[in-house]
Amino acid sequence: MKAHVLYRGEHHQWIMFARDEEKPEKIIDTNQYLVIGKNKSLLIDPGGSELFPVMLGSVLKFLAVNEITDIFASHQDPDIISSLGLWDEALPNAKLHSPWLWEGFIRHFGMNNIEYVALPDEGGRLDIGGTELHFVPAHYLHSSGNFNVYDPVARLLMSGDVGAALEPNDAPLVVDDFDSHISKMRGFHQRWMPSNAAKTDWIRRVRKLKIDIMAPQHGRLFKGDDVGRFLDWFDALEVGSAIKD
């Protein structure tokens, strides 16, 4: 598992964990994120149970286990949060911020100690030791209850499955040629994203944000102008491809 510092500011830093060499072949590669603030830290989409030992081992290189105070799960999928039962043993005092819609489902992954903080559909905010992170609604992109995390100070949007690409485990971390990257994203967005209306609404809201880095849960980071290029490309893309005319 590689760890990369995406942002280091006065009060907090963003770390990305990705490209796990230990990952079983048939499991989709995922990107996990950690925001370390003063006295508080947020683990974003910590991943599946298969990933847990590597992920915990990687996180411990940056901070003590009891310094992780909060977890965020963008939605209910196993690659996002099936490790919950294990984190529950490691972080008994932590809070899990996740869509209200999925509480009864996510608890199936095992949650005896961690507190579930149900995010309302309109989103919410979380102070991580002096930095306020925004939980941005991304419903139906792809899950029916779904959020992204926006950091206005780092100008970073953790975009969940939006911007995801399916590619080999050793792919570069950052999109270097947007046009050639399209082929790695198209099928995923057409099939996994169900709603054109949801997509258009999300793009309208996200265009108003100042974003230097867009960080999806699979694939590569979008930096600088590639963020805008992605939004334009996504805007023009018809999604929900499993329904034929």
């Binding site: 030992p53 490691a90 095992g110």
Partner: peptide, 28 residues
């Protein structure tokens, strides 16, 4: 479940390596 969890934490201990906060895991 306890045995499986224990195995996962032991693996995390190995992955963390010496230059880490892995001592935190001893109590768990």
């Amino acid at each position: 479940h306890t045995m499986s969890t224990s195995k996962q934490f032991n693996r995390a201990w190995d992955f963390a390596g010496k230059e880490s906060h892995r001592e935190d895991l001893k109590e768990i």
